[in-house]
């Protein structure tokens, strides 16, 4: 009976990305429909160490493909091996990070499999799986069924709690790298320009401070001190990104980053549906906006109607005073 396969992701430092544990939770939830177990596949230039990190999560096997050509991720090099291993499984799933979203549709095409991307939930109905996905810029959730023998999916990180270690030690097994097609010889990773920030990564931060277009050119000048005081990551609305006040990878929303921190502070953000779709799973939402009618107040736990250029520095000062 074919089972579920989780495709792990390795970070720049060679460790398993925490995001991978969302896909593990997805596979654990789906496994009753696919024979009861799941395995994990780790690919990379030095994947063995990372594989050992994943041996305590209850997987039937942790499969490792270690090859110098896999040291830097490209879909063209990864997809053939993921598909080759994946073809003996019923479900192949990764977390919907930028890497997962780049890789998995390519894997699906190689397997001629249907693909359900960015799933908010997976539903087990006997031996069938259904996938609940956000659509229409966050205005609706669609539940879809896939009718190909193999299903390929990505899991929205904010909707699946990271799997907890379950003890035990899964056997680690090497799998060979599959020779890639011509495409792989025509792509080259030139550079990764990491965002120079002392702030935590947006999708993993406990606190996120997000700004809208109202901040204008003072976007960082206003938000940095507050983010510093809260130990927060900085995010932005699409409008702020569109206007060039914040870089593109700061965008929170259905077509940007999906975040679910303990505390989300929306500053000068009106609350377009597509933005709300990217942050509504946050535990506590604070909104600061001078427009009392702004839609963001309809979903905020605490709203402050105020001019942000005064309120944000005042909030920063207050936080420093109370929590020095």
């Amino acid at each position: 009976m074919p089972h579920a396969l989780v495709v792990a992701e390795i970070a720049e430092d060679g460790k398993v990305k925490k995001a991978t544990l969302a896909a593990v939770s997805f596979a654990k939830k789906a496994r009753p429909a696919v024979g009861g177990s799941f395995s994990i596949l780790v690919l990379g230039g030095s994947a063995r160490a990372a594989a050992a990190e994943l041996a305590g999560y209850g997987a039937a096997k942790v499969l490792v493909c270690e090859d110098p050509s896999l040291a830097k991720y490209t879909a063209e090099h990864y997809a053939p091996t993921v598909a080759e291993v994946g073809k003996t499984f019923s479900l192949v799933v990764a977390t919907a990070t930028s890497e997962g979203k780049d890789l998995m549709p390519r894997v699906a095409a190689r397997l001629d499999a249907a693909y359900a991307g960015d799933c908010a939930d997976v539903l087990v109905d006997g031996t069938s799986l259904r996938y609940k996905r956000p659509m229409y810029a966050g205005n609706a959730f669609g539940t879809v069924e896939l009718t190909t023998p193999i299903h390929v999916a990505t899991a929205r990180q904010s909707e699946f709690d990271p799997a907890a270690p379950s003890g035990g030690s899964s056997p680690i097994e090497a799998v060979p790298k599959v020779a890639p097609g011509a495409a792989a010889s025509r792509v080259e990773v030139v550079s990764l320009e990491a965002v120079k920030s002392e702030r935590p990564e947006l999708t993993e931060a406990r606190v996120v401070v997000s700004g809208g277009r109202a901040l204008k050119e003072q976007f960082f000048q206003v938000l940095e001190p507050l983010a510093q005081a809260l130990g927060a990551a900085i995010g932005a609305s699409r409008a702020a990104v569109d206007a060039g006040y914040a870089p593109g990878d700061y965008q929170v929303g259905q077509t940007g980053k999906i975040v679910a921190p303990e505390l989300y502070v929306a500053i000068g953000i009106s609350g377009a549906i597509q933005h709300i779709a990217g942050m509504k799973s946050s535990k506590v939402i604070v909104a600061i906006n001078k427009d009392a009618e702004a839609p963001i107040f309809q979903i905020a736990d605490y709203g402050l109607v105020a001019d942000l250029f005064q309120a944000v520095p005042a909030l920063t000062a207050e936080l420093k005073k109370r929590k020095p």
């Binding site: 930028s98 990773v189 990764l192 990878d249 980053k257």
Partner: peptide, 9 residues
């Protein structure tokens, strides 16, 4: 545009 910044290919 990737999670950690800008990746040039």
């Amino acid at each position: 545009e990737v999670d950690g910044g800008v990746l040039t290919l």
